[in-house]
Every structure is written in C-alpha cells, then in structure tokens.
Computed example of a mutant assay.
Amino acid sequence: MFAMDALAQPARSLVVPYENEPPPKLTIDPPLPGPLAKGVAFIPYRVENLRILPVGGEPARRLSPRVGHLHITLDDLPWQWADYGGSSTIILVNLPKGRHKVLIEAVDPEGGLLTSQSITFDAPGK
C-alpha cells in the first residue's frame, strides 16, 4: 500500500525551484490518550507542502520548496511560542484540569499566516 501511495505522489526537487507550489496543509490529531491520562498532552501534527526549518527573514520567503515554522497558542493566551524543530508532536505538561484549546499556525519565515488548525480537549489534571 505504501509503495502505491508513493508512486501516486508527484516528485519534488529540493534543488530546483518549481512553480505553482500547492498551498501548505496542516493536520492536527487529538492528544494521545495514554499520556493525556497522566497529565501530558502529546498532540501529533503533520504539515504538507511546507518544510519546518530554523530560518527566518524576507530572503527565506523566496526559498522553494516553501519553508516556515509553527506558532503555538494555548487557551487564547496573549502570548505564543514558535516551533522550528519539525518534531511532528507538540508536548504540553502540567496542564491544569479542565478544557484546553491549542491553536497551531503554520507561518512563513517572517511570521505571516499560511494555515492554521486548533484542537480542544479535556485534561484530567492532578
């Protein structure tokens, strides 16, 4: 099955820019239930058509394939943090008991919004 999916995907060069890049896509999965029951939210995510790299500034906006990073906001707080690691998992520890919302935004190298997804879940607390 994997081989068939791989064959169906168009080839992408990392050396030659290509025109008309498809838009970035971000998918967030619910927190993993095992760790969440212990008070740790492991939130898996996937990005397509965007490489998460520790680069910034206007010149990086011209790179192809497209590069960027993530902005993460918890519970609509007025601050957020950035993720340049591309680990495919956001990990939150010691969340107080109750309902929480996590907003993940895929942004360009200068912080311009490309796409976003949010997820709401209940943490059991301690």
Results as ranks from 00 to 15, higher is better:
residue 40 V to A: 03
residue 66 R to E: 01
residue 90 I to D: 14
residue 86 G to F: 09
residue 86 G to P: 09
residue 16 V to M: 03
residue 106 A to F: 13
residue 72 I to H: 02
residue 44 P to T: 08
residue 123 A to N: 06
residue 104 I to W: 04
residue 117 Q to Y: 00
residue 7 L to Q: 12
residue 22 P to R: 01
residue 3 A to K: 05
residue 7 L to P: 04
residue 83 D to R: 06
residue 90 I to N: 09
residue 79 W to S: 15
residue 69 H to S: 03
residue 110 E to G: 14
residue 11 A to I: 03
residue 118 S to L: 15
residue 40 V to H: 02
residue 94 N to K: 15
residue 113 L to D: 13
residue 27 T to H: 06
residue 67 V to E: 02
residue 75 D to R: 07
residue 105 E to W: 04
residue 1 M to P: 12
residue 31 P to E: 01
residue 17 P to I: 04
residue 74 L to N: 11
residue 80 Q to S: 15
residue 90 I to M: 14
residue 114 L to Q: 13
residue 18 Y to D: 12
residue 86 G to T: 09
residue 34 G to M: 09
residue 32 L to Q: 04
residue 101 K to N: 13
residue 113 L to A: 14
residue 68 G to E: 06
residue 120 T to E: 15
residue 68 G to F: 09
residue 14 L to A: 10
residue 109 P to T: 10
residue 38 K to F: 10
residue 74 L to S: 08
residue 43 I to P: 04
residue 69 H to A: 01
residue 25 K to W: 00
residue 1 M to F: 14
residue 68 G to K: 09
residue 124 P to H: 05
residue 63 L to D: 07
residue 81 W to N: 13
residue 73 T to V: 11
residue 78 P to T: 04
residue 124 P to W: 06
residue 62 R to E: 12
residue 86 G to R: 10
residue 59 P to H: 10
residue 119 I to M: 13
residue 86 G to L: 11
residue 12 R to F: 15
residue 102 V to E: 07
residue 42 F to A: 11
residue 113 L to Y: 10
residue 74 L to T: 14
residue 52 I to H: 02
residue 79 W to Q: 15
residue 13 S to R: 00
residue 9 Q to W: 02
residue 118 S to A: 13
residue 52 I to W: 03
residue 124 P to V: 05
residue 40 V to R: 06
residue 18 Y to W: 10
residue 58 E to M: 13
residue 81 W to D: 14
residue 96 P to C: 05
residue 47 V to D: 00
residue 111 G to N: 11
residue 106 A to D: 11
residue 126 K to W: 04
residue 35 P to N: 01
residue 117 Q to P: 01
residue 95 L to Y: 09
residue 47 V to T: 05
residue 110 E to Y: 07
